[in-house]
Write a protein that binds this DNA or RNA. Sequence first.
DNA 1: GCAGTGACTAGTA
DNA 2: ATACTAGCCACTG
Length: 108
Amino acid sequence: MAIMKERFSERYLEFWEVIRQVPEGKVATYGQIAALAGYPGNARQVGYSLHASPPEIDIPWHRIINAQGKISLPKESGHYDLQRSLLEKEGVIFKNERVNLRKYRWQP
DNA sequence: GCAGTGACTAGTA
DNA sequence: ATACTAGCCACTG
């Protein structure tokens, strides 16, 4: 499988390094992660890196949402409900499928 | 190599 | 509020 390559690009590793710093009960956006990792404008790659990330890396992938405060995963996939329940378990409140970013956004 | 796709975003209308 | 656009770049066929 393509995702099981031994090495990932340095860019992906940088993304995951930043994501690892997002604390419990807080969220960050894809664009925010990209900018903090030193790749502003590469929000899409952040999403792709998570899609391709192997389970053995231990990162809070569920704390990453889009700039509208919504979950970017399709509801049909089942991953949507997983991400939402993981966040709610940490105290993040959803209102109309949306998180209040002004309240829950991680500020490094 | 080229075109399409995607866990994106900021801008404009 | 919605809709469309350009920019973004790794991956796939």
